[in-house]
Amino acid sequence: MITRIAERLFPSGRGRALPGASAPGDPLAEASDLVVRLGGREVLAGVSLTARAGEVLALVGPNGAGKSTLLAALAADLPADRGTVRVCGRPVAEWPARELALRRAVLPQAAALSFPFTVEDVVRMGRAPWAGTARDDEDDRAVREAMAATEVDGFAARPFSALSGGERARVALARVLAQRTALLLLDEPTAALDLRHQELVLRICRERAAAGDAVVVVLHDLGLAAAYADRAAVLRAGAVAALGAPAAVFTGELLSEVYRQPVEVFAHPRTGAPVVAPIRGS
């Protein structure tokens, strides 16, 4: 069944131009003056940013700030009303779907499946874009390594529908890793996870960046963003309020204003990374 799904989604694999390697710092996803309207409301208002090979870029901000919308626009899952989105230097509208799937992998907030696929089946879906290409012989190894990295190999034969929310989240991430693209777009990958697996997921993000990928990740946990991201974009009301290294942009003044919650920021005593804590009454 997985093979039939791959053939239906990504036909005519032979002869497809395969992506080449990226150099550190290469722009793999770019938004320029991006405007997106949903339901008559302007959700993104002139956003510009670049995700580069070899870095983790965190998108942070309060609910409704536009983080998931920006990620979906970078993935070409939402059209721009104005402005430009490029993946690997090319406007996303010019990429055929099967070619785009070789260059970027997307983890949505929720994963739902109607059929009783096993965990391994779901992870193997990440290999669908490569069917019929010169790299389809990597399928078994890619699936095996992705399941091991996310610690889901111990229940590979279990039905996806029988998993807990956190287990499903890790399986969905394994699918993205198995796709083996140079650009990873992850929407709240730690939302359903316990402390150990939150750290695991962000370590994977760092490892992928160290290997030359560009990772864009939506996070609500500012501590995780500060500890693992090379740069952070702080979004507010559909615009970028600040963009830079977490140590530079995570200030008490800015975050208190953006989140409408008084916070204090101090350096971790061992790592020096910013630690963000709400200011509470006695």
Rank of each mutant, 00 (worst) to 15 (best):
L107T: 07
F117Y: 14
V143S: 01
P96V: 11
A101T: 04
P108S: 08
V106G: 04
D121F: 03
A105P: 10
G83Q: 11
L102R: 03
F115C: 04
T118C: 11
A112Q: 13
V119G: 00
A134Y: 08
W95K: 01
A156V: 01
R158T: 13
V92F: 09
L107Q: 09
L113I: 07
F115E: 08
A148C: 04
W95G: 01
E99I: 07
F155C: 11
L113S: 00
L102A: 09
D139W: 08
V143N: 00
P159K: 13
G83I: 10
E120P: 00
A93H: 07
L113Y: 02
A112R: 09
D137M: 06
Q109W: 10
V85C: 07
L102E: 02
V152F: 01
R98G: 06
D136C: 09
R124Y: 06
L102G: 04
E99M: 05
E94P: 02
F160C: 01
R141H: 13
R124F: 05
W95I: 02
A148S: 10
R86S: 11
M125V: 09
V92T: 14
W95D: 01
L102C: 06
R135P: 04
A134F: 07
F155D: 09
E138P: 05
S161P: 05
V143D: 00
M147W: 01
P96C: 10
E120Y: 02
A97N: 03
P108T: 03
R90W: 02
A142L: 15
A111Y: 09
D137H: 15
M125H: 13
L107E: 07
